[in-house]
Design a protein around this nucleic acid. Structure first.
Lengths: 230, 230
DNA sequence: CCTGGGATTCTTACGATGTAAGGTAACCGT
DNA sequence: ACGGTTACCTTACATCGTAAGAATCCCAGG
């Protein structure tokens, strides 16, 4: 009777892949906190419980989106073609890591997820395996390369914490004033650098260059160790 | 009538301090996931809503326990007395950081909490201020010391991620077998190191020495920069 | 065509969590 | 004794993940 009251445009069927893609979309705009099963279902024009036919539970969704990002990283890294033999290993590693970082900048929620659930994801393993490969080409022993990966830590994937999802960026300057006399060096540093730099105390740390500074520090140190052990 | 049916031993009154201490206790054994307002109230022999008289909300509890740990770190670090002038800055910084690390090993939940809510906590600021002080004593410019803090990142506080709260430590070896042919270098590394090392593939990474390796790599690199800029 | 049985989606419901709103009890200076 | 803070409790709600099972869809076999 009165057939299909509301014949909508027949939404595409669900699938693990569509679910994960939608999840990434939601996290990208709205943060990881916006990713709930109900919101995710809504995004797909379905009901929350329908998702469980394609995903075991929310944890699997998180692992899934971590893997999506890891795959995206590997794709970008695959596209690079940088010579890596001998002393050029350093530049090759550097390029790869900075490429990974660019991907993560598009997914600010990813570092925390990668870090907590994806250490053993196939894609992440593959990424690390290839970093190891570069170091081997450059003349590293496995032992040194292994230490190197530990030394790099999350930097190997292009992040180093605290700079992503920076909460609400609430003001350091005002709150600092109260007990500033107890922090002579921080205050000294701030005033000295603010003096040199025209733009005010806000955003006076350039994430990108700080990241590269730390990265290069490590890579230079590793290079010295490599030479010494050759 | 029939006065105080059950005259218990009159539990000590609540207070912000007692609440935070209880919260740390719960997180210490049970993990950060075990810390709920109801569980916290139970630990104190009270009801959940009573806590809200002493704490604004759960987020304040988290900030609070981060600060408790940070205070603990500062206490331990205060007890150190290491000469720091000139070239000895490096050893002084190293000792402080390893002391902080020992505190964090007693509170495995702390890294994640510190990292997300305590960047601007007074105690953390104080800790960083004193690291800066050591570097100044050692001859750093504020500019270089500033980069140094960024380079150290979470390592400055004694952790470097992924090694704490390691999930369930599920086996790498078996799962790896499936696609091991795609990971030639990881497999090569594993087999080579497993060969040298009598104890099997489990726990073949010594967190402590890996941490120190990365830390020294950074400190050595900084020392070279410092000398060059003098 | 019907029909029945998997594959897929939805409905309803439960327990856990953070916390708003407002009541009750304990304490204290007058 | 009593009014007012201060400290604590009761009840209730929204939101979350998800268990259990009903409803629907789709297609091969009669």
């Amino acid at each position: 009777m009165a057939a299909d009251a509301e014949a909508g445009p027949v939404r595409a069927p669900l699938s693990r892949d569509r679910v994960l893609r939608a999840a990434v979309r939601i996290a990208d705009d709205g943060g990881i906190g916006a990713l709930t099963m109900r919101r995710l279902a809504e995004e797909l024009g379905a009901e929350a419980m329908s998702l469980y036919y394609h995903v075991a539970n929310k944890d699997e969704v998180l692992e899934g989106i971590a893997d999506v990002v890891a795959r995206e990283i590997n794709e970008v890294v695959d596209a690079l073609d940088v010579p890596s033999a001998g002393a050029r290993w350093k530049n090759a590693v550097r390029r790869r890591i900075l490429a990974a970082r660019e991907v993560l900048l598009r997914h600010p929620w990813a570092p925390s997820v990668l870090e907590t659930r994806a250490a053993m994801s196939p894609e992440i393993l593959r990424y690390h395996d290839r970093l190891l490969g570069l170091m081997r080409d450059g003349g590293f022993s496995y032992d040194l390369a292994h230490h190197a990966l530990h030394a790099l830590g999350s930097r190997a994937l292009g992040f180093s914490q605290e700079l992503f999802d920076p909460g609400d960026g609430s003001g350091s300057p005002e709150e600092l004033a109260g007990f500033a006399d107890r922090l002579p060096h921080l205050v000294g540093m701030l005033s000295e650098i603010a003096h040199d730099d025209p733009d005010s105390t806000l955003g006076w740390c350039d994430d990108q260059s700080e990241f590269e500074f730390g990265l290069d520090l490590l890579l230079d140190g590793l290079d010295r160790l490599r030479e010494r052990s050759s």
